[in-house]
Design a protein around this nucleic acid. Structure first.
Length: 458
RNA sequence: GGCCCCAUCGUCUAGCGGUCUAGGACGUCGCCCUUUCACGGCGAAAACACGGGUUCGAUUCCCGUUGGGGUCACCA
């Protein structure tokens, strides 16, 4: 059993394609088959090395590995042309000398008469050679009678009348193969048995099958996965915002969160929501993939991401946060992580929450924090005095000392904790106040408090 | 428009003729916890698109309607 994922290098790895790749990969892994990767780089203008690297990088980040090296479709062009000529020899294809202008005229005419356009090339059944010096394409002699059916692993049995199929181009007038020919030849040569791809290719399957049959090759099994839609139900596109796997990476999404989210989008396994890669391989099969397109929900991705951040190793998170903060990895960051990570839905929020640890005095105080500080300078003085005499700078001792200070001042703990938080972090939200004090240390804590005990710009 | 496909809470889904007064998750709304924000706990509102069949019995099977999507290149 062999599957293949065949993205084209468009400059980014589309989230929908990534999911298709994931399904293709999982299907192979679940059944103990081979998962191959083929880059469809026949569009030379777009297929830069950089664009290819983006795809490779995105897949690797998601944790998808492939059996054998990546194939590049462009390498097989001579073979594609060879098959096109074999098709002519077999009487299954023909040279067509219709010019693009003639084609367009016919199409326009059909459109004007409001009837469907189906090419009937007069060259299909001519045996004589065409005119000299006129460029020609090679077209497939598509079947015209009967119907073609495929038993799709996701869509079920789908059939179409052969009258709907046209004599599409296999080889362009410049000798280059079309996508329709290239995929079929490559899939055959790579011995692909299961083609898992987006259902925007469903209609192509009938045409491709015609080539397979004309060559007498074994027929592959198809599985057409529904596309991902935006929140409004339309095909996911630029106006919906982030499209590429890299965009989500930059937003601070963990790869395992995206993996889990994409897996559950269009597929389910009972009531299971949190699914590891190992479990996915054990459970995944195509028969539970839904037939209808599913909408992308950022909120659910975020919630999954928050879960995986909480599960993640502190040292790993510290490293990722340090990168985002452009500081060097530190022991302090690792120590702060248990408190920090419970509050973040993505890596950027996590980094933002860690900022106060590395801020230099005097701190920048945000507006709500400043408002809080305004009427609490006396209280801060009391806290400073109490904290100054604490000898064991740990969570429990601090808890005791701050509560005692609040009691002595005749206020509730919150009344004192909030100004303290503002002074220590410059914000009104942060980890627990005692944890903040511990992380900052006695010297830095006292200094930050003292900074706020006097009116600013006095 | 032709052809093809699809249709369970707002969203992702479970359900594969009776177990459904339809389950879970995200989101939403309450309450609890609480020094803030989160986390966590408890609870609530929220769906089988509609109309015909088939059947003793339909969310589950069939047909139609409506709605949605995909595709119609010498792009991939």
């Amino acid at each position: 059993m062999v599957t293949r994922f065949a993205p084209s290098p468009t400059g980014f790895l589309h989230i929908g394609n990534a999911r298709t790749g994931l399904f293709s990969w999982l299907y192979a892994r679940h059944h103990g088959g081979k998962a191959l990767l083929r880059i469809e780089d026949t569009d030379k203008a777009r297929s830069t090395q950089e664009a290819i690297d983006v795809i490779l990088d995105g897949l690797q980040w998601l944790g998808l590995d492939w059996d054998g090296p990546a194939y590049f479709q462009s390498q097989f062009e001579p073979r594609h042309a060879e098959v096109a000529h074999q098709l002519i020899e077999r009487g299954a294809a023909y040279r067509c000398f219709l010019t693009p202008e003639e084609l367009k005229a016919r199409r326009d005419k059909a459109q004007a008469e409001r009837r469907p356009f189906r090419l009937q090339s007069e060259w299909r059944d001519r045996s004589e050679a065409g005119p000299d010096g006129v460029p020609s394409v090679i077209r497939l002699k598509a079947p015209r009678e009967g119907e073609t059916a495929i038993d799709d692993l996701v869509q079920g049995r789908v059939s179409v009348s052969n009258a709907e199929l046209d004599d599409f181009v296999l080889l362009r007038s410049d000798g280059s193969p079309t996508y329709m020919l290239a995929v079929v030849v490559d899939d055959h040569d790579m011995a692909v048995t299961h083609i898992v791809r987006g259902d925007d290719h469903l209609n192509n399957a009938f045409r491709q099958l015609a080539i397979v049959r004309a060559m007498g090759w074994p027929e592959p099994t198809y599985a057409h996965i529904p596309l991902i839609h935006g929140p409004d139900g339309a095909k996911l596109s630029k106006r919906h915002g982030a499209l590429g796997v890299h965009d989500y990476r930059e937003m601070g999404i963990l790869p395992e969160a995206l993996f889990n989210y994409l897996l559950r989008l269009g597929w389910g396994h009972g009531d299971d929501e949190i699914i590891s890669a190992e479990q996915a391989i054990a459970w995944f099969d195509l028969d539970h993939v839904g037939k209808s397109p599913s909408r992308f929900d950022m909120k659910k991705l975020e919630s999954l991401n928050a879960h995986y951040i909480r599960e993640a190793d502190d040292a790993r998170l510290a490293k990722l946060v340090a990168e985002r903060l452009e500081i060097s990895d530190s022991e302090l960051l690792v120590r702060a992580m248990p408190e920090l990570k419970a509050r973040a839905h993505d890596l950027n929020q996590l980094a933002d929450g860690a900022r106060f640890l590395f801020a230099t005095r005097p701190l920048t105080i945000d507006e709500p924090a400043a408002a809080l500080l305004k009427d609490s300078r006396a209280l801060l003085g009391a806290a400073h005095a109490a904290l100054g005499s604490v000898s064991a700078w740990d969570h429990d001792a601090l808890d005791e000392a701050v509560r005692a200070a609040a009691d002595a001042a005749g206020v509730k703990l919150g009344k004192l904790a909030q100004p303290l938080r503002a002074a220590l972090t410059g914000r009104t939200t942060s980890p627990g106040i005692f944890d903040v004090l511990v992380l900052l240390g006695q010297g830095e804590s006292l200094a930050r408090i003292a900074d706020q005990m006097v009116e600013p710009n006095a």
